[in-house]
């Protein structure tokens, strides 16, 4: 079986080529830009060019976050949203993040499979990422990936993330609009509601409305939202039965236009930008700290606080 094949040379693109191709919406360039960012191979000047390019652009993409517990139907929902939008000649870009194994670093990136049937299609782009290399759930790559898709002129950019806690809160900062998806009969829901995400998201999508237990879940949900001031609306859909999808898109479109017209969109995007600055700082410093802790000498007689302060001062931090 060990028949020698000559090794192939993997396609190499310069940053200039990547940039030129991606703003034309070329998939090879776009895909490669995302790989470079994810592998931390992109220089800051490429990223700056992308941000500058987006800032100049008149037509903004609608950046929609979809979050929720495992198995509530996020991917299925995204697939029917995309299907509907494609029929209306919209360009749709999707980013999905799946957890990677902490032990091997490997990952099964399974979200894509739910909309695989929509391919081949030149108006649909999907990219799967693993959560590998994220320090403390903070992930600057995904933020930048969204900006890359924006530069490639998609009408809608949809981001799917999973998990409870930090990640969901991040996604709110990453997107113009965020939907929390819930489904009947999943234990995690209540935890979601308690985690405070409900106060941050723009709407709650009650998926799997086709299931007999759906009305009970809506009941529970209502009793929670009642206690929350300015609580988000609840939109009922069934992703697998393709019910309520057009209504959901209309809701999202309206909400987005409202944000735009009231100046909140600009505000949110400013917050987003600032958040991303913080993200990168936390990521870079976090990695430095991680490395220090791993390598650091053990001096059980010194207080950990003292080591922390003195080291940070050594690094030039005014603490």
């Amino acid at each position: 079986m060990r028949n020698k094949v000559s090794k192939k040379k993997r396609l190499v693109l310069t940053e200039e080529e990547v940039f030129r191709r991606l703003i034309k919406g070329d998939e090879v360039g776009l895909a490669r830009a995302l790989s470079m960012i994810y592998r931390e191979e992109a220089s800051s000047s490429l990223l700056s060019r992308i941000y500058a390019y987006n800032a100049e652009k008149k037509e903004k993409a609608k950046i929609i976050g979809i979050t929720g517990a495992g198995g509530v139907g996020k991917s299925t929902l995204i697939s029917v949203l995309a299907e509907t939008l494609l029929k209306e000649d919209k360009r749709v870009g999707v980013i999905a993040v799946d957890p990677s194994s902490p032990k091997t670093g490997g990952a099964l990136l399974g979200d894509r499979i739910r909309l695989q049937h929509l391919f081949p299609n030149s108006n649909l782009f999907f990219r799967s990422f693993s959560s590998r290399g994220m320090v403390g759930g903070i992930n600057p790559f995904i933020f930048d990936a969204v900006s890359v898709l924006e530069a490639a002129s998609f009408d809608y950019i949809i981001v799917e993330t999973l998990g409870i806690g930090q990640d969901e809160i991040d996604i709110v900062h990453m997107c113009d609009l965020t939907a929390l998806v819930i489904a009947p009969g999943l234990g995690d829901d209540v935890q979601f509601l308690k985690s405070g995400v409900i106060e941050l998201v723009d709407l709650i999508v009650m998926n799997k409305a086709d299931l007999p237990t759906a009305s009970k879940t809506v009941g529970i949900l209502n009793s929670y939202t009642r206690m929350v001031e300015n609580h988000p609306d609840i939109v009922k859909v069934s992703a697998s039965k393709k019910q309520g999808i057009r209504e959901l898109i209309a809701y999202i479109d309206n909400k987005w236009c409202e944000l735009k017209n009231t100046g909140q969109l600009v505000e949110r995007r400013t917050t987003r930008w600032k958040f991303q600055v913080g993200n990168w700082m936390r990521y870079i410093v976090g990695k430095k700290i991680h490395g220090f802790v791993e390598r650091g000498e053990v001096k059980p007689k010194t207080s950990p606080y003292e080591i922390a302060i003195s080291t940070l001062r050594e690094w030039g931090c005014e603490v």
Binding site: I113, R114, H117
Partner: peptide
């Protein structure tokens, strides 16, 4: 009837 795609679990 339409065509069906069952969920793929892997």
């Amino acid at each position: 009837f339409g065509e069906y795609r069952p969920p793929v679990i892997f």
